[in-house]
Amino acid sequence: MKRFGLPLWPRRSSSAQTAKNRLQILLAHERSGSTPDYLPQLQREILEVIRRHVTVDEEAIDIRMEQGKELSSLEINIELPRSRP
């Protein structure tokens, strides 16, 4: 709504701005095709490499991700057995 050519209140409420930001980040990842469809394979390969050196359980690997605007982080946790073979 405008009065005397000035916006009566800021055009966007903060939740709408949040919505836009969230969509921009998400869609940038989806459009670039960088949505991690490669992760299952990555997990298999990482496990393979590790298993050349240590015996680890297939379920001992945990992958977490946080996608951001500037950068995304991939956190890979692997539980190693107490005693090495």
Binding site: L26, P36, L39, I63, M65, Q67, G68
Partner: peptide, 11 residues
């Protein structure tokens, strides 16, 4: 998106 965890989806 509705739950707000869209940036944490891995599998």
């Amino acid at each position: 998106m509705i739950m707000g965890c869209e940036r944490r989806v891995v599998y």
